[in-house]
């Protein structure tokens, strides 16, 4: 009885949604934040509904499967796509498909049905097996040297190595991405960390496929709209979720200059530009400058093509991981852009 009452209450909660952005969506899914019936969450562990937005060919599909299995039960999946004939990874095989502009209604209904037990929670799609063979190699059978190193269960363990202060500390190889907060679509970082300092970094963009797009930016207002979506993502990263919602709402409608200016004022007062100053400098421009440029509604060209992935990787070395995330986000790397496609066609 009490359990049923709790389930009914849970069914009315704002739906925690984790969005995996694939190919052909750009930053469009960021706009979902505007709707009070949803809560965009930053970890799949916090979500009941996984919204897989766009195309997921090859390795990106494997990544979606992995994220899918991290959602706690009760969980469900929606595939939001303009291309229903595209690659369909295991996690999306039984998912409901939404092709229209607004998936919110479907998300809310899915959450309600899951909480009330009307439909079954998604089963895991990956086997719970170690992806790497490692047993029996090395001193302790973990595959490395001594008590360190090796790749047990597919996770590389730390080995010692020289650091910037001349000490020999643990170096941990990690692979982060592709669906992390602030990361552009399909980006994956192969990094070696000592503590939280990046020692080596390599950036990789997974194949995003090609075909019809979900985000069709108006070429006239597209730049401003994209900047607002980017701002929503950046503000969420900085812990300013409420301002991110405001930016997402502005991105949905062609905003009056006054409301954009009001948002810019709030962002300037939040101390975010100061927090980003001196971070991720390339060609004399830091993350702060890139943020401020996009805040200004009168600036015609907020966007630039962005530096190469190799140059960004160089800048990441020596930063702590939090700064590395800010750096990556601040560049707004054009991994998957509607306007890039428009330009290519023109």
């Amino acid at each position: 009885m009490a359990v049923a009452a709790v389930r009914r209450l849970a069914a009315t909660a704002p739906v925690p949604v984790f969005v995996a952005r694939g190919g052909g969506t750009g930053l469009l899914p960021v706009e979902l934040a505007f709707d009070a019936r949803l809560r965009l969450v930053v970890s799949p562990r916090h979500a009941t509904v996984l919204v897989a937005a766009g195309r997921f060919p090859g390795p990106l599909g494997v990544a979606v499967d992995r994220v899918h299995d991290q959602l706690p039960a009760p969980r469900g999946t929606l595939w939001w796509t303009a291309d229903v004939d595209g690659d369909r990874p295991a996690a999306l095989r039984d998912a409901s498909v939404v092709t229209d502009a607004d998936p919110v209604g479907s998300v809310v209904a899915l959450h309600r049905d899951l909480c009330l037990g009307r439909i079954r929670s998604d089963a895991a799609v990956l086997a719970d097996d170690p992806p790497n063979r490692f047993e029996g190699r090395g001193d302790h059978g973990q595959g490395g040297e001594g008590m360190m190193g090796g790749v047990p269960w597919g996770r590389p363990m730390a080995m010692t190595g020289d650091d910037r202060d001349g000490l020999a500390l643990d170096r941990l190889p990690v692979v982060l991405g592709p669906f992390l907060p602030g990361f552009p679509n399909g980006l994956r970082v192969h990094a070696v960390l000592q503590g939280d300092v990046v020692q080596e970094a390599k950036l990789e963009v997974l194949d995003l496929g090609s075909g019809p797009r979900l985000d069709r930016l108006d070429p006239a207002a597209g730049g401003a709209q994209h900047d607002l979506r980017w701002l929503a993502e950046a503000l969420r990263l900085a812990g300013l979720g409420a301002l991110a919602v405001r930016a997402a709402r502005l991105a949905r409608a062609a905003p009056a200059p006054a409301s954009r200016a009001a948002l810019a004022r709030l962002v300037r007062r939040s101390g975010l530009p100061a927090a980003w100053s001196g971070v991720g400098v390339i060609d004399g421009e830091d993350a702060r400058a890139r943020l401020v440029r996009r805040l200004d509604p009168s600036a015609p060209e907020g966007r630039s093509p962005g530096p190469s992935l190799e140059r960004v990787a160089e800048v990441l070395v020596g930063q702590d991981w939090s700064d590395a995330v800010v750096t990556i986000c601040s560049f707004d790397l054009p991994t998957d852009r509607a306007e890039a496609v428009i330009e290519a066609q023109a």
Binding site: S43, R45, H46, P181, L237, G239, W321, S322
Partner: peptide, 11 residues
């Protein structure tokens, strides 16, 4: 923090 996927609560 949200920038680290929820930090200590990420999992």
């Amino acid at each position: 923090g949200d920038d680290l996927s929820g930090g200590t609560t990420a999992d």
